[in-house]
Design a binder for these strands. Structure first.
Lengths: 241, 241
DNA sequence: CCAATAGTGTCTATCAGACATTATCTA
DNA sequence: TAGATAATGTCTGATAGACACTATTGG
């Protein structure tokens, strides 16, 4: 940021100021909740480097197309799922000399949430995109440092689950409190007290009772939807970690 | 990430793959506590763009020198303060077409903390670097989107002050509980209950009593130092926002 | 003694944990 | 009726807020 620039001399394919900028990519850890499991979206890489391994949905920032970093994330996610996620937030940026065999590279990593049903059809039609349950990822070969990124995203979501109901954005528009609690339990890695969970949500007025019910076995459960303010609401007191 | 590359054809000054990467910079919001004020380090810009305005300490990532992004942040901070900050953590990455007149650019922004005394001498000797109190920044002309970055860093620190004693890393090695509390009050923007503040810190065992005392007026205050674990400790219950 | 600041005692309110109980559905 | 799941009642414990009180220094 301390170099005088004359853009008129710039040639295409190199920085007008002659500075070599690292390769800049954006990746997303897209979570969903399906069949009582926490899953993330992975893409089978078909080209080098790391061809054949699984990677996060993402790619190179295209300065001609993308107006900002989030636009890149969205573009790549829409490409794989058909729709925009209900939640998208920056996680962390990793950049160093070693993470990519091509040399110094940077990835801006996002965390995203989406309802499984909303994109199930599109994901099924694309052959190299798949939802993978987090507890079945151990033996998968993952590209670059993506396993680390996933771990960090998981930890971030775990914290969020302790003091907010943001994970609810991984559920369909209408959901039961049981589903939301189970999702939180998966993220936190521990069973929660039903009473505590429901009480705090009710007291903060974070959900709207749709009036509808859903029944599978036993007593029908009320179906709720998220309030807009739920995205940013933060409980003063955490659930037990 | 889906392009085959032949590095051997690369010419210097442009990406080997012919992709135009945005300008990549790193900036830091370095906080300190001095004379009962919260201050940040600003640098008077001497070159275009935005010459004459104040900006955050930072600069372009040098892939030949920096092993990773944090190394760039550190290098630039050491350059301005003479030493490494006691705390350095990534805040957020901003990247779009408009924030820099030179075109699409990205800044990876860090939040940092340091004791004022530790770098006071070095900062005083450099003419275009200055500690600016946060409450006296209104009328300053700031470069790029740096005012926004500062605001975001402040909000992040505010949250941290509610559930941790991380702000303590902006204090000298030995400090009083009164100083730490006042720093938290500045960040949170509200007076705190002395009893609550001390109780939770004591119970969590986050500080070590050095045995020394400091006296200015009235009863001498005990001098404490941070425990290592204090960096990551998170109270289950927040102070009132 | 007073002024000033450091540090403590103690009551209350809030809210999560624990777990028993009741409610509502199907078979 | 039994089995299953949803929802509630209610007690306990932990901890932050409020605020009065005591302690230790200098003048």
């Amino acid at each position: 940021m301390s170099r005088v620039v004359d853009e008129s001399t710039a040639a295409p394919g190199q920085r007008p100021d002659g500075i070599l900028s690292p390769l800049l990519t954006v990746d997303s850890v897209l979570f969903t909740y399906h069949e009582r499991l926490l899953k993330i979206l992975l893409v089978k890489r078909s080209v080098e480097p790391e061809a054949g391994k699984w990677g996060l949905p993402g790619g190179i920032v295209d300065v001609a197309v993308d107006s900002d970093l989030q636009a890149t994330a969205l573009r790549k996610l829409v490409d794989k799922t058909g729709i925009a996620p209900t939640y998208l937030d920056q996680l962390e940026t990793i950049g160093d000399r070693l993470r990519d065999p091509r040399g110094w590279s940077v990835t801006v990593c996002y965390t995203a949430l989406i309802a499984h049903q909303a994109c199930a059809y599109h994901v099924d039609t694309v052959s190299d995109v798949r939802w993978i349950a987090l507890n079945k990822m151990r033996h998968l070969r993952l590209a670059f440092d993506h396993r680390e990124l996933i771990k960090k995203a998981q930890e971030r979501m775990r914290q969020r689950a302790l003091y907010s109901i943001l994970p609810g954005y991984a559920l369909p528009e209408l959901f039961t409190l049981g589903e939301l609690q189970h999702l939180h339990e998966l993220l936190i890695g521990k069973a929660l007290q039903k009473r505590s969970f429901r009480r705090r949500i009710e007291q903060a007025g974070l959900l709207v009772d749709s009036g509808q019910k859903r029944q599978e076995q036993g007593r029908p459960a009320a179906l709720y939807r998220l309030r807009n303010k739920s995205l940013s609401y933060r409980f003063v007191r955490n659930l037990e970690g």
